[in-house]
Amino acid sequence: MNIELLNHASAFICQEADMLDHGEYPEWLALWEEKGLYIVPINPDETDFANTLNYACDDAKMRSLRVARLGSGESISTSPAPRTIRSVSRFRILADDGKTVTVRCAQNLREFRKEIQKHYTANLTYTLVRDGDSFRIQQKVVRLLNASDALQCIGYIP
């Protein structure tokens, strides 16, 4: 097991989680490859995201629009903004071709907004492209444990 790579990738993912929990969206947007995709599928087994309906399938433009909406004050479902704390763990390197690394981990996310705390658990799968001594995100897939159920609205970036 390549512990150095595992540490490296998990440190990157923990940092990303911390950015999202603390609303550091410009920094978060800068983590991405220009052609990167942020995906939240409905069926956790789905692989053809382009030709199926997802909860989100954001290219660079949609990611920046999503971020703009969260901070705009124009959306009643995100004002006040939900507070989130996510823990990421159980990191595993699934593939490494020298250029890109595929990492899977578990995410437990607690959300609190207006008297209600909710809990979303997910498998996260990242395709990370090596970029100097760090990475850039080529793809992030958030497979919510209960994605196939009727959800409640999500006013942040899980």
């Binding site: 309906l53 399938c57 959306s75 409640q152 609205c153 999500i154």
Partner: peptide, 19 residues
């Protein structure tokens, strides 16, 4: 599909505000 995701559903830009 992308238009639907843009407005509809629990992570859309429209439905959560309706909700």
């Amino acid at each position: 599909l992308r238009m639907h995701e843009h407005f509809q559903g629990p992570m859309g830009f429209g439905t959560p505000d309706d909700s």
